[in-house]
């Protein structure tokens, strides 16, 4: 028996207490999202999804393709409206509107006609600004944090894929959002760059204390990065498993060798494939 299976993993994360729910950073209430496909049929992407995410929690949403994990993320970002139910975003401070949530897409999605600095500063003109913040200085600090200071005046085409995704992360952080949404941000990168950026995102989380909702189809990525893993099943997309990870706060390559880590990956796998022998 693997350790993770025998461990009493908290069910309290998904608390139903009303007082607790009000404090959630993101709350999904019976969220159902369906799409009309061309043939006229309705496809249910997510069916009756319930989840509360506490502030500063790093949550990985993992599941096979078609489980609606990206759809849920897009609903938090306001890109789609739930067909039924509700997605609520609560911010701890008084900031309103779009500054509270920022999204990092699968592709870097940089504007090719803007420099690195221009891209990082792009959200500033639309979002709710905090008074007294020098945003170009903040942009420089963020670029410094991800080691891109030298490239602030470069154009995206001059950067590697990993560097571009770093810029996209800086852009997401420029307005100091409370909630960071990441939609398979590293799936288009090579393995080495991916590993490097994974630890970087973990560091950003440690440093800034943002609530992070991270969508991935990689079981090891989910276990490596998150404090809490939500496993989803497909057709229709629904919640399959939800547990907290008891791993060191600082993650590095040594984390991969921990027996607990292997146990968590196993548990995610079981959640996705069902309890199959020899899997």
């Amino acid at each position: 028996m693997l350790m993770a299976d025998s461990k009493p993993l908290s069910k309290a994360t998904n608390t139903t207490a009303a007082g607790k729910a009000a404090q959630d950073a993101v709350r999904f209430d019976h969220v159902t999202i369906s799409f009309q496909i061309r043939s006229g049929n309705e496809v249910i992407a997510v069916d009756g999804f319930d989840l509360g995410i506490q502030p500063k929690q790093f949550v990985a949403l993992v599941g096979p393709s078609g489980c609606g994990k990206s759809t849920l993320l897009r609903a938090v970002a306001g890109l789609i409206d739930p067909t039924k139910g509700q997605v609520r975003v609560n911010a701890p401070d008084s900031l309103s509107g779009f500054a509270r949530v920022a999204m990092v897409f699968q592709a870097p999605t940089l504007l090719p006609w803007k420099t690195v600095l221009g891209n990082v500063l792009y959200p500033v003109r639309f979002g709710t600004k905090r008074s007294g913040v020098d945003y170009s200085q903040r942009a420089s600090e963020l670029l410094d944090m991800v080691g891109l200071t030298r490239f602030r005046d470069a154009y995206p085409a001059e950067l590697s894929g990993g560097m571009q995704q770093r810029v996209a992360i800086c852009r997401a952080l420029i307005l100091d959002p409370d909630i960071l949404l990441m939609d398979e941000p590293f799936s288009a990168l090579d393995a080495l760059t991916r590993e490097e950026l994974q630890f970087e995102v973990r560091r950003v989380h440690q440093k800034t204390g943002k609530t992070i909702l991270f969508v991935t189809h990689s079981m090891s990525e989910a276990a490596l990065l998150a404090d809490r893993v939500v496993v989803m099943a497909a057709h229709p997309g629904r919640l399959k498993d939800d547990f907290l990870l008891d791993l060191p706060t600082d993650r590095d390559t040594a984390t991969l060798d921990l027996p607990e880590f292997a146990g968590y990956v196993r548990r995610i796998r079981d959640g996705i494939y069902g309890q199959r022998e020899g899997k």
Partner: peptide, 25 residues
């Protein structure tokens, strides 16, 4: 690209702002 327009929406750009800052360039 739809991705870029989605980005515009997530940062709170209105339809015309998305056209002016993304689609037009």
């Amino acid at each position: 690209p739809k991705d870029m327009l989605d980005l515009g929406r997530t940062v709170g750009a209105s339809k015309w702002q998305r056209i002016a800052t993304i689609a037009l360039p």
